[in-house]
């Protein structure tokens, strides 16, 4: 069963990666499983399309750089595909990241750089920043809620909402860039409002905060997400402008040929 909590949960606003997850891991405690399932069920959909702005602001100079993004997702049974494509500016236009999750949780996909460069997703590649922002490809692809150790470790108020703190740990040595992920989830909204990512030494590496959220129909979705590396020289904001869900995104949209055509 898929449990794709990855940071796409936050990045893709209506949380596409979460949408298709089923039950939590066997080693997760029941309360954690219930909480994860609640968030996942609130976000289930067949497919989605999101338009967002990725804004990177340099800490010292305050220099601001914007990239326009199109994020699409599709579910085929238990397998999922998520495609992140840069639309603007020209220097980034056509760059894409395809993340495919098989029914047995395997992550495949590639990074596409126009005109023809296709880089398969390896552990080394996954550590690269996405479109020179504070997000790594790992942040967009890894399923933290699929990690075997999940437990609720406390409760705290975030943005005026009571949240439960979920700790997610990988089994053994982490394959992803992080050894511990703490997520503050508001059960009432079925929405994570804060994520802290830690390295193997227990040091905080990155903070992700949902700055704004709103109700879309019966669901609560993030509108603005801030990504702040602990020792970084910049911070990144993901600002959603449009989100459509329960769509049937054609499978051809995820084919390399179609991905390449955007760059032309």
């Amino acid at each position: 069963m898929m449990k794709p909590f990855c940071l796409a949960l936050l990045l893709t606003l209506p949380a596409p990666a979460l949408l298709w997850a089923a039950a939590a891991s066997d080693q997760a405690n029941p309360a954690a499983t219930e909480l994860i399932d609640k968030v996942i069920n609130a976000r289930k959909t067949t497919g989605f399309r999101i338009r967002a702005k990725l804004i990177v602001v340099q800490a010292g100079s305050g220099k601001r750089q914007t990239r326009q993004l199109l994020i699409k997702g599709r579910r085929d049974g238990e397998a999922t595909k998520i495609l992140y494509q840069a639309l603007w500016p020209d220097a980034y236009k056509g760059r894409a990241l395809l993340v495919e999750k098989s029914a047995d949780h395997k992550t495949t996909g590639f990074l596409f750089t126009p005109p023809d460069k296709v880089t398969p997703l390896t552990p080394e590649v996954m550590k690269q920043p996405f479109l020179e922002s504070d997000l790594t490809l790992d942040d967009l692809a890894e399923d933290y809620w699929h990690w075997p150790l999940q437990k609720i470790v406390g409760q705290e108020t975030v943005s005026g909402k009571s949240c439960q703190i979920l700790e997610s740990r990988p089994a053994g040595r982490p394959t992803a860039g992080y050894a511990l992920v703490k997520t503050w989830i508001c059960p009432d909204l079925a929405l994570p409002l804060r994520v802290h990512l830690f390295d193997e030494g227990g040091q905080l590496v990155k903070r992700i905060n949902v700055e704004k959220f709103f109700q879309q129909g019966t669901r609560w979705v993030p509108a603005t997400i801030m990504i702040e590396p602990e020792h970084g020289r910049s911070r990144t904001t993901l600002d959603g402008s449009k989100s459509e869900r329960d769509l049937d995104i054609p499978v051809e949209d995820f084919a390399l040929g179609k991905i390449k055509s955007l760059a032309k």
Binding site: T66, Q68, S241, K242
Partner: peptide, 10 residues
Amino acid sequence: DLISIEDAPT
């Protein structure tokens, strides 16, 4: 439609 264009507001 309301569209986010380049670096401008929607």
